[in-house]
Simulated assay, not measured.
Amino acid sequence: MSDRLTQRDIARLARVSQTTVSLVLNNRTAASARIPAETRDRVLKVIRETGYVADPLARRLLQQRNQILGVFTYESVFPSASADFYHPFLSGIEESAEELGCDLLLFTSAPVTDGRRLVFHDNNRLRIADGSLLLGRRIPAEELSRLVTEKYPFVSVGRRDDPDGAVVPYVGADYTTATATVTARALQLGHTAVAFVGPGQGAESSADRLRGFHQVAPRGLHLSPVETGGSSDSTPSGTADGVRPINAERAVEELLDELLERKITAVFVEDLADAAALAAATRRRGLAVPGDLSVVALGDASRPVDGDDEYSGFHIPRKEMGRRAVGLLEAVLSGDETDLQQLLACELVDGSTLSKPKGL
């Protein structure tokens, strides 16, 4: 890795955001006018003292930019079932883009197939934007590889594995550490029979959570998730073979049966909505949460959740991920490409659904 100073180094030394450093360096009148004089002077002082010099080629390319950042979502972000989950990401992206004086372009022309869309289709308009932000639970490896190969400037909101050894720029959440921390908390409280409910594979976020769980509880039980959305007679979407899955409420009841049969006292659930469904099923049996079964949510809900419980676990720093992703994309466009992969700490939540197991 090069020892060349980066905008991120300047931001750290000046105690400002990387976006602020970029605005000061590039002197964008409309956006930078909002930066207080004291802040601007502090950034310039650090630049003078460190001898920072921006890449000259990047500066020339900067003059040719449209000041448009693309946003591509692999799943729709507007249906009510997902709106609450994606809103903080988009809010952070919008806020940071405004600070930079950039417009956002939401790519919507890509055809949706099986509930998903792909960047590369016959009429893709990626080049309208200077670079793009990618949002989605799973991003096909072949798309990431092509973006890297074609040297298209992009940043993924969420950690992505490197296809073919390529470096994928991303700003993600440190699910591994957060999950390990809350699992350790449960063991400290006296839980010895614990279980993880979630895919644990496929999306990097799922694999990271399971990794964190097994770091602390290597013999912990791993159970596949169940569809818990919709009414009891609804058909959950996303079944590739068209086979109607079992009744969602019955699936949760069967999951609960297995947990109780195995004498599990604390369960760690990837999606808060699934955690809420499991807690509701537990209470319908006349059992207490957390007394009889502690339920820990490893993140936020991807669909609406009923009830006022504050679930123990952690929150995903979604808004800050959106903000930082724009800052990283700006760094990529400016030729300041150190620290292309960033993980942000999750916000731990004590909550009311984790306690000592009954009898301790």
Rank of each mutant, 00 (worst) to 15 (best):
G172N: 03
T149W: 08
E253H: 13
E249F: 08
D233S: 11
V155Q: 08
A54E: 15
V243R: 07
P304G: 04
E204D: 13
G291L: 08
Y86D: 03
L360G: 15
Y170A: 06
T183R: 05
L61S: 02
D309W: 12
Q63C: 10
E99M: 13
S156Y: 05
S206G: 13
L287T: 09
Q188V: 14
A195Q: 12
V295W: 05
T235M: 04
G307L: 02
R219Q: 15
L105T: 11
F268P: 10
A277Y: 07
T39I: 13
Q7I: 15
V24Y: 06
E95M: 09
A193C: 14
F107N: 03
D41A: 13
Q341L: 14
R250E: 11
N123K: 14
D174M: 00
A193Y: 08
I10C: 15
L126Q: 01
R15S: 15
L340V: 09
L90M: 13
A54N: 13
E320A: 08
A240G: 11
L223G: 02
T39L: 06
L104S: 09
T73Y: 04
A240K: 09
E94Q: 13
R125F: 05
G322M: 02
L221I: 09
D306S: 04
R211H: 06
V267R: 00
H87E: 13
A297W: 15
I316D: 05
L133I: 07
T29A: 10
A37P: 11
A276E: 09
K151Q: 11
V148S: 15
G238P: 06
R28Q: 15
G242W: 05
I35N: 05
A277C: 07
T181I: 08
T192P: 07
V197D: 11
L5H: 11
A297P: 12
G242E: 01
A58C: 07
N124G: 03
D9N: 13
G202R: 10
T265M: 03
T6Q: 07
S156P: 00
G51I: 01
G70S: 02
P140A: 10
P225S: 00
S96P: 02
A251Y: 03
L106K: 06
L62H: 15
R137P: 11
A203K: 08
V194H: 00
V182G: 00
T177W: 03
D308P: 07
P88L: 05
L223I: 05
T177Q: 06
Y170W: 08
S312M: 08
I10K: 14
G322I: 01
G200I: 02
V216H: 04
D300T: 06
Y52F: 12
V295M: 02
E258H: 10
A240C: 14
A186W: 01
E150Q: 11
P357K: 00
V243I: 15
E270W: 06
S302K: 10
R138A: 12
A110P: 11
E310V: 15
P169H: 09
E320K: 04
K263A: 14
T39S: 06
I93L: 11
G238F: 04
A31F: 07
L44T: 12
N66V: 04
G212K: 01
V53A: 12
D309F: 09
P304S: 03
N66G: 05
V77G: 06
K263P: 06
L340Y: 08
A81G: 11
G158I: 00
F85P: 12
L293K: 07
R34I: 01
G291F: 00
L360A: 13
K45Q: 07
E75F: 01
S109T: 10
L104H: 03
